[in-house]
């Protein structure tokens, strides 16, 4: 049996209206404990108004070696960017 507590990824929302951002990870025995640890480790200087913790083991990540097949095909498809649309002046700043 490992003596290490499981790893959790921590997401914090800095202020209302913004989305949660990944800020780092920590070890904790369960979800409640992870929330408390996140509060102590990552919000000491009033960084957040909301905390999410996610077991790191439950995150499915893309593999770096798949970079080519996943992202390169988008390189020559610039038309997917909205800059191709002419925006009438009346619309103003978007």
């Amino acid at each position: 049996m490992s003596n290490e507590w499981p790893l959790w990824e921590v997401f914090i929302r800095g202020q209302h209206g913004l989305s949660h951002r990944h800020v780092g990870s920590l070890h904790a025995s369960d979800a409640e404990h992870a929330l408390q640890n996140a509060r102590d480790v990552y919000t000491r200087r009033k960084e957040g108004v909301s905390i999410w913790v996610v077991p790191a083991a439950d995150i499915t990540a893309s593999a770096p070696e798949d970079k080519g097949s996943l992202y390169d095909p988008a390189d020559d498809k610039v038309y997917r960017h909205p800059t191709f649309f002419d925006i009438p002046d009346d619309v103003g700043a978007m």
């Binding site: 920590l26 070890h27 640890n37 480790v41």
Partner: peptide, 11 residues
């Protein structure tokens, strides 16, 4: 015993 507990106790 753990970094997280260390910071919590100091807080």
């Amino acid at each position: 015993p753990a970094l997280e507990e260390d910071i919590a106790l100091a807080n």
